[in-house]
């Protein structure tokens, strides 16, 4: 299946803003996070098609996955 991965803020450094990925059916968000060299602790928001999603969400054909880093300063 084909999905789109969008990265935001510091996750773009040394990676990309947007990329298409061909993945086997059943791939979840966590697998993609780890394949990008990111850790679960760094993740702030996981968004699929504009809506908040869990890391164990299983992606569907033509989904758009967006990943934002954790932000907590004041």
């Amino acid at each position: 299946m084909l999905i789109t991965v969008k990265l935001f803020a510091t996750f773009r450094n040394g990676r990309f803003k947007v990329a298409g990925q061909a993945l086997p059916p059943g791939t979840d968000c966590r697998t993609i996070v780890l394949s990008l060299g990111l850790t679960e602790e760094e993740i702030g928001v996981v968004m699929v098609n504009g809506r908040h999603a869990a890391l164990d969400y299983v992606l569907q054909e033509s989904d758009t996955l967006s990943l934002f880093p954790l932000v907590g300063g004041g």
Binding site: A9, T10, E40, E41, I43, G44, V45, V46, H52, A54, L55, P69, L70, V71, G72, G73
Partner: peptide, 14 residues
Amino acid sequence: QSIYRNWVEGKGIE
């Protein structure tokens, strides 16, 4: 609570 549902410990990019 949903915004930080993946949070385990520590600070963010700040």
